[in-house]
Structures are given as structure tokens and as C-alpha cells.
Nucleic acid binder design. Structure first.
Lengths: 205, 205
DNA sequence: TGTACATCAGTGAACGCGCGTTCACTGATGTAC
DNA sequence: TGTACATCAGTGAACGCGCGTTCACTGATGTAC
């Protein structure tokens, strides 16, 4: 990674932390460049305007989340051949990873885009929507494979159930932040896992 | 309600809609007073500063949410004596109410406080935390009564399960906003309801 | 009923600071021949 | 190896606008006697 790309990443790191705690509108370029120890013109060398920073930041965030989810659920499938058990293992690994974040999950950029929607252009909102739809497809694929083998014990819409993964994470992050208790996010993921167990597993002890 | 109080409410209505779509930092007083058709000095007659607007807005929001939840779950208890069935009825009523919002849930102020935490003073963050803790206590009371009669089929922390109500709503709102599909929130509440059924109900058809 | 005064619900003008953005310029590094 | 040029990764100064806040003032309504 060249010097330019390094600075660019650093600017996005600083901006992301600020956006997650102050919102995009209250995150000023002055503040970012002060922390990055660069001039304002240096910032505009890397990003045409503030909206391009937002776009680049969101793109990077979503790609990283996808990578993390790939790793976790690929690993889970390595550990068990059965789709249900692999999914349950994946959720456990996911919860553990969230519990291990030193000062809790810093927040989800996708959520801030939703709660700052009028600050962004259509391009960014589309990117945000596609990211969430990709998560839906990812988990829907797993759930369909599970439901083929294990008939669900309650009538559920698998698409909504797939969304429940993302929903649980988004909700868990808000609850963790509101109460200042990082562990809540992991707890919520484990409750979702409990639901999946009760819904699909034939015999729960 | 006097003329002053009416203006005050109107200012908060406008501010709330803006905060939920742009964040607190990007919500300007100029913008609020333009929509309210009042001068800037008129605004400062009602609120000492911007932070007092935030405090008043959050307080009003939380009190209203509490009132709505009271109504729904009181009504549910009127409809069924058994605590589990009353709770399930309450969740159904809640989901229906969320589904009936004409253009979807506008967003939760508690979530925006979390994602704008560095913009607010300790007083506001405390108020936010107390609101979430009150929701926890509310649902924990119901869940304890349920668990006394119906032994849960999976080992769950009832406090976390109580939090799951708020978490589901927060997550569902984010998902609804991200995908522009208001119905998602109601779906997520019904999935939580399905979990409660599977967890406590002895025989699900 | 009339008068004096207080409170309510604002107005109008001004303030200084911080914001995002532009523009002309520059030293260091990389590449072609 | 030396030279010419291009690209990279920025600097420095200036811009105009919008922001939150203050202050002295005011007309309308309410209250006491």
C-alpha cells in the first residue's frame, strides 16, 4: 500500500469513528484533518467532496463486513457438514467475535446512513440497500438448505428470518450503545440462535 | 394547550422529523424556524439552546412511547388472563400498529441519540439509558410471570429476552429504512413473537 | 368599568466562528530514453 | 548514469455562506384593585 492509499485509509478510519458517534453532518473535515495531521487541501486531494468520502467509507465498510461474514460462516461449514448445525456454529462464532471486541462494536455505518438518509445522494442510499439485500440473500441461502432438511416448527417467512440476522445485529448495537454494555449485542445474537434451534432442531434437551 | 405550548410542540415535531432523517448535527435551527414560520428569536424564547431542544424532544418521545406500550399491553391483558397469551396478543397488536403506520415508522429518537452520542451532554445520555432500562423492566415483569407458569424450552436469560423486544424494534426500524419497506418492522416483531411461542408454549401446532 | 402593571410570545438586527470548497502552487518520487 | 518530464501527495491562502447565540425591544393578553 502506497503512501497515498495509507493516508486515504487513515482519513476514512478517523471519519468513520466520528460518523458513528456524531453523525455525518456533525463530522467536519477540519476535525478529520486535525486528527490526521494533514492540511485541508490534502483532504481534497483524496476526496472530491464530503459525499465522496461517505461513498468510499460505506463501500469499504460493507466490503469488510462481507469478508468477515464469509470467514465466519465458511469456517462454520468446515466444522460441520449439516447446514443447520453449521449455521448454529456460525452464529456462535459470530457472537463470540462480537463479545471479544475490546470496547464493544463501534456501530454500523449502514444504520447511520439510514438515520442520515437526507444527507446522502441516491448513489449512497442504493449502495446501502444493496448491502442489506446481499446479507438477506446470504442467509436466505443457508436457511433454505436448512428448511429442506428440517421442517420449521412454526410458519415463518424465510426471507424475514434471513433479515432477522441483520436486524438482530443492528438492534443489538443500538441496545449496547444505549446502555453502554457491549455484551448485549452478543447476547442478542445468541437469542436469535436459540430461536433457530427451537424452530428447526427436532429435539432440544 | 396555550399558544406558546402549541408552538413549542410544533417546533419539536419539525425538529424530530429532521433529526430522524438527517441527524441532530445536520438539523439547523434556521431550517426548523423556516418550516415553523417563526423567527430565530422566537425559537430561543422556547428553548435556551439547541441542547435543550434535544432534551425536551427526547423526553416527549420517550413518554409517548411508554404511553403507547402501556395502552397496547394493558389492552392485551384485558383480552386474556394468561400472561403468556396476553403477551402474545400484545405483540400481535404491536406488530399490527407498526404495520398500519402510513409511511412506515419514522425512526426512533433513542437510536439517533446512540449514533449521535458525542453531540449530547450526560443528562441526555442518561435520560436515554433510563428509557431503555424502563423498557427492559416492563417486559421482564411480563416474562417472569410467564416463565413461572411455562418453563422455557431453552436456557435463556430473561433480562436479555426482555431487551430483545426493544432490540427487535430498533433493528426492524433500521432494516425498514435501509430497504424502504415499512412492513419489515412488523415482520420482525412477529418473528420475535414466534420465538416466544416456541420458547414457552407447550404445544405448537 | 377603568387603569396599572406583569407576563407571554414573540420580532429584528447583529455577532463571530466554523464550515465546505476552490485555486494556484510545490517538493518528492517514478519513468523513459 | 544523467537528464527531462510526469505523476503523486500534498501546501497555503482565500472565499462566502450558514451556523448557534445574544440583546434590546414590542404588541397582545391576563390579572389586581
Amino acid at each position: 500500500m502506497g503512501k497515498g492509499q495509507q493516508t486515504r485509509e487513515r482519513l476514512m478510519d478517523i471519519a468513520e469513528a466520528s460518523v458513528l458517534t456524531k453523525g455525518f453532518g456533525a463530522t467536519s473535515i477540519d476535525e478529520i484533518i486535525a486528527e490526521a495531521e494533514i492540511t485541508k487541501s490534502g483532504f481534497f486531494y483524496h476526496f472530491r467532496d464530503k459525499n465522496e468520502l461517505a461513498r468510499a467509507m460505506l463501500l469499504r465498510y460493507v466490503e469488510n463486513e462481507d469478508k468477515v461474514l464469509d470467514e465466519i460462516f465458511d469456517r462454520a461449514r468446515e466444522l460441520h457438514d449439516d447446514p443447520l448445525h453449521a449455521f448454529l456454529i456460525g452464529l456462535k462464532l459470530f457472537a463470540e467475535m462480537m463479545a471479544d471486541l475490546p470496547s464493544g462494536h463501534p456501530g454500523c455505518l449502514v444504520a447511520t446512513v439510514c438515520y442520515n438518509e437526507r444527507l446522502f445522494d441516491q448513489k449512497i442510499r442504493d449502495l446501502n440497500e444493496r448491502a442489506v439485500l446481499a446479507w438477506r440473500e446470504r442467509f436466505l441461502t443457508e436457511l433454505r438448505a436448512i428448511a429442506e432438511i428440517y421442517p420449521p416448527k412454526d410458519k415463518v417467512n424465510l426471507e424475514a428470518l434471513a433479515d432477522m440476522v441483520s436486524s438482530t445485529v443492528e438492534g443489538g448495537i443500538v441496545m449496547s450503545k444505549a446502555l453502554g454494555q457491549p455484551k448485549i449485542l452478543a447476547e442478542q445474537i445468541l437469542l436469535f440462535r436459540s430461536y433457530v434451534k427451537l424452530l428447526f432442531l427436532p429435539a432440544v434437551n
